[in-house]
Design a protein around this nucleic acid. Structure first.
Lengths: 127, 127, 127, 127
DNA sequence: GTGGTCTAGACCACT
DNA sequence: GTGGTCTAGACCACA
């Protein structure tokens, strides 16, 4: 399904959330599709079931998946794609900082431009 | 100098790092300028000196400031070239995440592209 | 595991760093092996957990170990390539000092040369 | 006379000691030659006189210089060049570690060999 | 005065 | 259980 980076600074449950989010938004996991059970996924990724549990709870809270007791968890039909203005503002601010720091680190305007273009295309490819 | 958000999920020392980095990148703190002493800043922000020291250490590690024991801490003139590669990689990863998240938030590829272009030009204007 | 010299001028956390580094370099601790937990080692050596954590953090920064919060600390498989340049520079500086000091101590250029040759061959033998 | 690196991790007085030692051993400062006064040198290097004081005291203790009250400080006639076996052993151990670490960092036997040769010649040139 | 190290103990998030 | 952060306070070397 996807891989975890144990050495990463971001916690495992967060990585699971991010990865599944990505799969849903990239339509690899489509609406109403059944997700692997907590136990199943925990075995696949060789992590603690509690960790998967927490990730699923978070995804449910964010509206990406829903749970039917006794049946399993499924991808929500319509992920709320309404733009969260506040969050967009926050992320924009992060990007602004990052770009500024690249300048400080000695990259030219052009190099930064190229890098951003690459990152954007990288994302586009996933779609 | 700046304010802390004690309710925030990001740790205090990290907030200090981010804020001071921001001040340096925005040239509010210029090269060779002396930063407030560990004790001084800890009083101003009413946090423990150890917390400030941890922040200063991180900033030093990232190449933004340097330390002369017994004298104080100062803003670096330019980032140590040897740290660059590593740090550029880290910042690139942050940007990658940010761009990905904008996608999560419902922005189209084009909208993201426009936003990045704006941010980049904004930077150019400062030069 | 190893012993501390509390009378030494080098700080405790640095001694811990040096000792563990040594164990890793001598392959006593092999890749992916779990290190004692912060609390455990702090009890063994009868020092404060913070001191051990500081040492572990430094070792992580130098690329020798990595951390999985909630799981423990482990020996890195190989040093992160991006850290290399920086660290090689630091070690080179240490060697420069050492060689200079041997001169201070009265060894001739030739004697130093012989000694280095021996050390290098010694290393070769381990391979 | 020489330059200080304020950003360096080694304390200033130690840098002064090392530099003067080096000058004496390289015969740039010859026996019975008068050293600059504490005040003079402190002005030249723009550091606190106490710092120079401490360096001179250390050099005197190590037998490199001697002081005549009211006249000044002078280079000792014969620096004791008898080999301090214990110290040579310690430095050798440091070099052994450094060389081992370079191997861990991915340098080949040959690269290390080249580097050591360079460092040694660098020193030779100063003589 | 400055930064650097250390202790004793607390609370938190994650596995 | 694990590491991560933080406090309150101490002592040290250096400038």
């Amino acid at each position: 399904m996807f891989q975890l980076d144990l050495k990463s600074r971001t916690s495992i449950y967060e990585q699971v959330v991010d990865n599944i989010k990505e799969l849903i938004l990239a339509d690899v996991l489509s609406a109403e599709e059944k997700l692997p059970s907590v136990r199943e996924l925990s075995k696949t990724l060789t992590v603690n079931p509690n960790t998967i549990q927490k990730a699923y709870r978070e995804l449910e809270y964010q509206g990406f998946i829903y749970t039917v007791a006794g049946l399993g968890t499924f991808v929500s039909k319509a992920v709320d794609k309404e733009v969260d203005v506040r969050r967009v503002g926050e992320v924009t601010e992060e990007l602004r900082r990052g770009i500024r720091e690249l300048g400080f680190l000695g990259l030219t305007q052009e190099q930064i431009s190229m890098l951003l273009k690459d990152l954007l295309e990288e994302r586009g490819d996933l779609r």
